[in-house]
């Protein structure tokens, strides 16, 4: 049985997390992507996200920048401190480049500007494949 990859979705709106999950499920079978089994974890606050992150150790996190109990960028910083090799995608409704730059400097792997669509999710999943590939090459080298 192949392993299951865990995706943590962090957004305070239920319907947004649901939409993101649906899009991920629809894009995942695309033949240009590495085929994996995914399971989903959800959090609607920074506190819940932090808890789920430490408990379940997700492989991939979609993290909204605006959270009711904190700033997503600060949470990104904490999560990367605790697990440097986690693939975290920041999500925001505003595409100011300052946000994008801060996210990159805090270690975000990518940045999605809402509204979500399949093209954006696909690009992120391609990047995730590449990241996993690079990680496994790096492991073999050591």
């Amino acid at each position: 049985m192949p392993r299951e990859w865990k995706i943590l979705l962090v957004d305070d709106q239920d319907y947004t997390r649901q939409l993101l999950r649906n899009l991920l499920m629809s894009v995942a079978p695309e033949p240009k992507l590495v085929q994996r089994r995914y399971s989903f974890l959800q959090a609607s606050t920074a506190a819940q996200a932090s808890y789920a992150f430490n408990l379940y150790r997700p492989d991939l996190v979609f993290l909204d920048i605006d959270l009711p109990d904190g700033n997503g960028l600060e949470l990104l910083h904490q999560l990367k401190e605790s697990r440097k090799d986690c693939f975290i995608v920041m999500v925001s409704g505003v595409s100011t480049l300052d946000n994008v730059k801060s996210a990159i400097s805090e270690g975000a792997a990518s940045f999605i500007v809402k509204p979500f669509n399949g093209d954006k999710i696909f690009a992120v999943m391609q990047l995730f494949d590449q990241f996993i590939e690079e990680q496994s090459v790096a492991k073999k080298m050591t």
Partner: peptide, 15 residues
């Protein structure tokens, strides 16, 4: 890259 035009389910639209 392939282009996606994904339908959102009626349940989700309702939500």
């Amino acid at each position: 890259p392939p282009q996606f035009n994904l339908a959102v389910s009626p349940e989700l639209k309702q939500q």
